[in-house]
């Protein structure tokens, strides 16, 4: 009998805690209806060497950069607070309008508050020869992931 009170309160607390967890879990749905993260970005011949291509930025928030050896895809989301930077061709840098972070064409941050470089997306050739960019796989420089074969499309 001496234990009835502690047991009762323990059970009550456990029930409260578990319903709290269940309520929190309610905030995270199992299925998300968000736009597709992968898209086909045309044939490699459509890009000029040495240029940062902005044609997919409005639709998919991705820049495709063509270098002599191949392609990489930069995700146009500032690593500071998620604004989308602009490519300033004259100054050869990405500049974020929210807090002034600046990035080189490679994606490396060099000014402003951004704590780390821009992220790169998976970029491969699809079966039909088009470039396939998949934003659901991201490569971060500071984790050494840019050397991953899918972070850079060799031509």
């Amino acid at each position: 009998m001496i234990w009835s009170l502690p047991i009762g309160w323990a059970a009550f607390s456990a029930a409260c805690a578990s319903s709290l967890v269940a309520t929190a879990r309610f905030l995270f749905p199992n299925v998300l209806f968000e736009p597709p993260q992968a898209f086909k970005a045309g044939f490699p011949g459509e890009y000029n060497v040495g240029e940062v291509d902005t044609r997919w930025k409005d639709a998919f928030s991705v820049w495709i950069v063509r270098q002599p050896e191949g392609f990489y895809a930069l995700i146009a989301v500032c690593t500071h607070l998620g604004c989308s930077p602009n490519w300033l061709a004259a100054e050869a840098k990405f500049k974020c309008p929210c807090h002034g972070s600046g990035f080189y064409a490679s994606g490396i941050n060099f000014e402003g508050p951004a704590p780390r470089p821009l992220e790169r997306a998976r970029i491969v050739l699809a079966d039909d020869g088009q470039i396939l960019v998949d934003k659901s796989t991201k490569f971060q420089f500071e984790k050494g992931e840019w050397t991953n074969p899918e972070a850079f499309l060799k031509i």
Binding site: A76, S84, C98
Partner: peptide, 26 residues
């Protein structure tokens, strides 16, 4: 969602916080 206005400002009463974000990490 793909085009950030330049400059892009928080509501005015949070501008102190936005200013702070320039100096300290989020």
């Amino acid at each position: 969602p793909a085009r950030t206005p330049n400059p892009s400002k928080a509501p005015w009463y949070f501008l102190g916080l936005q200013e702070m974000l320039v100096y300290y990490d989020p």
